[in-house]
Simulated scan of single mutants.
Amino acid sequence: MNFKKIISISAIVIISGLIIYGFILINQIFSKNTTFTDKEVYIHIPTDANYQTAKAIISPYIENMDRFEMVANKRDYPANVKAGRFLFTKGMNSYELVKALRANIPVKLAFNNQERLENLAGRVSSQIEADSISLLKVIKDSVFMKENGFNEENVFALFIPNTYEFYWNTSAVKFRDKMVKEYRKFWTEERINKAKLQNLTPVEATILASIVHKESVKKDERPRIAGVYLNRLRLGIPLQADPTVIYAIKKKSNDFNQVIKRVFYNDLVMSSPYNTYINTGLPPGPIAMPDITAMEAVLNPEKHDFIYFCASVERFGYHEFAATLSEHNKNAKKYSDWINSQGVKR
């Protein structure tokens, strides 16, 4: 065999080897490398995680870790692990998986209808990395509250129910600071001036809105209820709001899971700053997280002379309103007779 043939054969062997290697390499990079059957899964990589931590988290979703690691090393992923929420879709190859681990997907964080700060912290911590303890700590920080005009009883008024966009790896401090910005965004000059017309600060308006929110689920009735309470505040009459008494009972027993459908006389005389039967003015803080319609009801109340109302037995979910005590007593007796007939004990 002459020298030229040897060179040609060697070249063919080398080229064939390169082709085979290239084919294997392409197959390793671009062939399916997932194990899950769902259409998609979200992967959560915690803050300060290293490559070993990330590997432990993602390995249950990857069919062949050797193939993944080969691509990860070539793409310098081990030295550049990112924290966050990442989307894997069924059938992704190793290249796509590594690429996905660099695209932090935001969370649509939603909260509403929370009864107290602790419930809110639990709700938020189920959606981002920060835990409820760290959230409560930074929100109740004395310096933070003082700088922003809150105290421990009313800081719950800071949170405007809505859906917000956050990265999953948001810290407790970043969440808190974002909520301050959203609070200031909500309380426009127009809304602040509307509150002033009712002799209320934004915090006081939120406290009253929390009562209105608890009094009725009927959004069209809330401006009328707000008008009743504003009339009482102007006259210096106790609000006598049953939801505040229910909140006081729950707070005193530290049991916010109990369901209270009926308030009795003994409840009305219990000692609590939240009991608006024995205290005039507003309670020291919100008794719930009011939704926007309740807030707007307080800022845009119905103008009328009513100072009493009670649940209606003819239009369930709504209330009967009265301007005089005698008229109210008639309405209240109807409701009392009906609820006794239903056998409601508590």
Rank of each mutant, 00 (worst) to 15 (best):
E204C: 09
A205E: 08
T206C: 07
I207F: 13
A209F: 04
S210I: 11
S210P: 10
I211M: 14
I211P: 08
I211W: 09
V212N: 12
H213I: 00
H213S: 10
E215T: 03
E215R: 01
S216H: 05
S216Y: 11
S216M: 06
V217W: 00
V217T: 14
K218E: 15
K219Y: 10
K219W: 03
D220T: 09
P223H: 05
R224G: 00
A226Q: 03
G227Q: 11
G227R: 01
V228T: 09
Y229C: 06
Y229V: 02
Y229K: 02
L230Y: 01
R232G: 09
L233G: 04
R234G: 00
R234S: 12
R234H: 08
G236M: 05
G236R: 07
I237P: 04
P238W: 07
P238H: 08
P238Q: 10
P238C: 11
L239H: 05
L239F: 01
Q240T: 07
Q240E: 12
Q240G: 04
Q240W: 08
D242T: 09
D242M: 08
D242K: 11
T244G: 06
V245K: 05
V245D: 10
V245N: 12
I246Q: 07
Y247L: 05
Y247K: 04
A248N: 09
I249K: 13
K250G: 01
K251N: 15
K251C: 00
K251T: 00
K252P: 00
K252Q: 15
S253E: 15
N254K: 14
N254V: 04
N254W: 00
D255F: 03
D255W: 11
D255L: 08
F256E: 07
N257H: 10
N257Y: 07
N257S: 13
V259K: 15
K261D: 11
R262M: 04
V263A: 07
F264P: 00
Y265E: 13
D267E: 11
D267Q: 05
L268S: 03
L268V: 04
L268W: 05
L268F: 06
V269L: 08
M270R: 15
M270W: 02
M270L: 15
S272K: 12
S272P: 10
P273H: 11
P273A: 10
Y274N: 09
N275A: 13
T276W: 06
Y277G: 13
Y277D: 07
Y277V: 12
I278L: 06
T280Q: 12
T280C: 01
T280A: 12
L282E: 10
P283K: 13
P284K: 04
